[in-house]
């Protein structure tokens, strides 16, 4: 994958598939160090699953026998001198409070790092496909911060108008375009 924003999309999809209702995504990209963090309240992973997370031949899916999402991210992090850490509490072991936190670090000035790419496109794609999930996106750069909270948007729109409706998506797209323009 040639854009970092695609890694973000791919990794956050794991939280979606874990059945999370709340997913916080943060990108702290200041002073040459990029920290990408995802926190969700999904079904989590057992210790055994967690151990095998960076094994490409381990996956829980049924349609194919390989899982490359986390291995790809780990490879990119490590080739820039960073790393990936994942902690998780499985719903099977803690029904009250469960979920996963992933923290990946990258040296964004490293020659082997890749361009950020269309991060707005990633946020919009996540909302479009999962309008019921409460995403919070925070992107901090040397130029300022972009922030979007789906829970806040929902409280304005009320019930019955999904975030995935074309009119709302157009507003979100416009909002993000302007917010990123300001911190350029």
């Amino acid at each position: 994958m040639e854009e970092f924003s695609l890694y973000v999309l791919d990794i956050v999809m794991n939280s979606v598939r874990a059945g999370a209702e709340n997913i916080d995504v943060s990108l702290d990209d200041r002073g040459g160090l990029l920290t990408f963090k995802v926190t969700d309240d999904g079904c989590g992973m057992t210790e055994e699953q967690l151990e095998r997370l960076s094994d490409p031949f381990f996956t829980t899916r049924k349609t194919r026998g390989v899982g490359l999402g986390v291995p790809f991210l780990k490879m990119l992090a490590e080739q820039t001198g960073g790393d990936v850490k994942v902690s998780s509490v499985a719903a099977s072991e803690s029904p009250e409070s469960h979920g996963t936190t992933l923290v990946a670090t990258f040296h964004s000035n490293h020659i082997d790092f890749i361009p950020m790419g269309d991060i707005k496109g990633t946020f919009v794609t996540l909302i479009q496909g999962n309008p019921d999930v409460n995403f919070t996106f925070v992107h901090e750069t040397d130029g300022g911060e972009v922030r979007l909270s789906c829970a806040e948007l929902k409280s304005v729109l009320g019930d019955g108008i999904p975030l995935s409706s074309p009119e709302v998506l157009a507003w979100i797209r416009g909002y993000l375009a302007e917010a990123y323009e300001e911190i350029k």
Partner: peptide, 22 residues
């Protein structure tokens, strides 16, 4: 939109459908 789709370029395809249909 799994890893395979995303890596192959599914995001711009999805967005083309979302915007185009509207």
């Amino acid at each position: 939109m799994a890893t395979c789709g995303i890596a192959a370029g599914a995001r711009p395809v999805l967005n083309a459908f979302v915007e185009g249909v509207s």
